[in-house]
Amino acid sequence: MQLDVVDKGLDAQRCKAALSRRHPPRRSSGFTLVELLIVMAILTILWVIASPNYDPIIVGNKVKQQKYEIATSLAMARTEAVKRGALVRVCQGTSGSCGTSDSGSESWADGWRVQDMDGDTVIHLEQGAAPNTTLSYSCGDYVEFNTTGGRVSSSDGECVFTAGKKGGADYDTKLSIGRQGRVQLDYTE
């Protein structure tokens, strides 16, 4: 092709100019590394600002889990009392004597156990509350069920377990135990 151009009397400069008009220099269609890093930094900042805070959801679920675990233990104790024909207690603490000052624990949040009072047999053991949650009971250190499944207590009214978050009442949820031993969960949350 260059020979044809030379034969027609065109010089080399004019040849280069003609070729450059036909094939303009290629321009890069990608991004530079700096541009890419800047865009990534902006997207990261936007993601951090726009993403929701999941802490309230996690704490709320831990409190609900705590409530369901104590409800399960209470239902188990009531069933075992009827099945065994003996007094069964749900006691705070994971060791020590049930219903005495030597319960092995200072609060329900440290754990609890289901115990047959005739043979002092531990039927079930629960290791305690999830971190940053609390559990309290309005009627003492233990819940006792008789052979008919009723709650034995010095209190004539209902006794209430309250599960919540340490340092705040925002997540408090209640579980009540009537004289008949029936456990009722508070579903108003």
Rank of each mutant, 00 (worst) to 15 (best):
G181S: 05
T188C: 04
Q184Y: 10
I177C: 03
D110V: 05
G128H: 03
Y171V: 07
P56V: 12
I49G: 06
L10V: 12
T32R: 01
G150K: 15
S20E: 03
L185S: 02
D116G: 02
L37G: 04
K16L: 15
L43F: 09
T121L: 06
E144V: 13
F161C: 04
Q184S: 14
F31V: 08
P24H: 01
G119I: 07
V34C: 00
K83N: 13
F31G: 03
V90N: 02
R26S: 14
G119H: 14
L46T: 04
V39N: 01
D170C: 12
P52R: 12
V34S: 05
D120W: 03
M1P: 10
Y171P: 02
T44I: 12
A41T: 12
V6Q: 10
Q2K: 15
V88S: 00
L46P: 04
S29E: 09
T148A: 12
M40C: 14
S107Y: 03
G99D: 01
K166R: 15
Q66P: 04
S51N: 09
T147N: 09
G119Q: 13
Y142E: 11
G164H: 06
F161W: 00
S20A: 06
G178P: 05
Q184D: 14
K8R: 15
L37A: 09
K165N: 08
L87P: 02
E35F: 08
V152K: 10
G99M: 00
S153I: 05
K174R: 14
G168F: 13
T121N: 14
E80H: 08
E126C: 04
G30P: 08
R84W: 03
A129E: 00
V114C: 01
S103V: 03
S29A: 11
W108F: 02
T94L: 02
I123Q: 06
L87G: 04
Q92C: 09
A77S: 01
V122H: 03
S101H: 05
S101Y: 04
R113N: 06
Q13I: 08
R14M: 14
T148P: 05
D172K: 04
G150T: 14
T32S: 03
A75Y: 13
G111D: 01
V82H: 02
S73F: 10
C15D: 09
G85H: 01
A109V: 11
A169G: 13
S136A: 09
S138A: 05
D118S: 13
T32V: 02
T133C: 07
L10R: 11
K166F: 15
R89F: 03
T148S: 10
A77R: 01
D116M: 06
Q180E: 15
D156K: 09
Q66L: 11
S95E: 08
E189R: 15
S73M: 13
E158G: 15
G104K: 07
Y171H: 05
V88P: 00
V63A: 03
T100G: 02
S101E: 10
T173D: 12
S28N: 12
A71Q: 02
D156R: 07
E144T: 11
I38Y: 06
G150N: 15
T162I: 02
S95C: 08
A129T: 03
S107M: 03
G119C: 04
D141H: 13
P25W: 04
H23C: 10
R179E: 10
R26W: 07
F31Q: 05
Q127W: 07
N53R: 08
T94S: 00
D55L: 14
